[in-house]
Design a binder for these strands. Structure first.
Lengths: 117, 117
DNA sequence: CAGTATCCTAACCGATACTG
DNA sequence: CAGTATCGGTTAGGATACTG
């Protein structure tokens, strides 16, 4: 008797058919890697991220930041209690384990632009 | 006078706000990296891919394979002219440039399963 | 400044039946 | 065997106005 269904991987309530899809579940989507790319080497405030990502909408940026925070990749630090607010986003230690990967993703994109376009 | 809009990257008719998003445009989505992961070291037939990815539907697998082929990452080779067909999918030379990245994506997923779940 | 609220569209993806 | 056709559901993401 062999198992027809390869064992699924589980993380944070989600199931993934392989280790590659688990990673993509956390950093996939249109904007997550872009956010992580901009936070790779520095903390940024909400509006700084907006300027770095001119085509994202406020709502989408907000949702994606929240998702990354929930997955433990980002931390959100609030510096003021009253408006105008100051909030900084930065990678957690867990998020920092992604730095080499994000760099590789960016590098491959660069390679494509240089050599194949 | 400074440019408000950072220069967009273009590849195959799409525009991307940064090099990381270009990469994700090609390998993002729920299934593409899983397909590439399974084709990293061997050619596979359609049904072999289906067995390796038990939770994907025929339609979705077909659409994703077509998209990867259109982006030049996969090649599709047909060995018979009449049913039953034999078709093999494999990485193109361009697709092979992704191998280290796919491996890194898979490795990070493994790391998460081992250490953070 | 840093978001929410509301509404809407499009893309993605699944289930199932059918075909060359 | 290797898909396509059809239909439908879910979710990601965009536009814009508003708020603590």
């Amino acid at each position: 008797m062999e198992s027809e269904q390869p064992k699924m991987l589980k993380f944070r309530g989600q199931e993934y058919p392989c280790c590659a899809s688990l990673t993509m579940g956390l950093i996939g989507g249109k904007w997550k890697t872009v956010i992580l790319f901009h936070l790779m080497h520095e903390k940024l405030r909400y509006n700084e991220l907006r300027k770095a990502m001119p085509t994202v909408t406020e709502r989408t940026l907000s949702l994606q930041l929240k998702a990354l925070e929930e997955d433990g990749l980002l931390k959100r630090k609030v510096y003021t209690s009253k408006p105008p607010l100051k909030v900084e986003y930065s990678l957690t230690d867990f998020g920092k384990t992604l730095i080499p990967l994000i760099q590789s993703i960016a590098d491959w994109g660069d390679l494509v632009v240089e050599k194949y376009s």
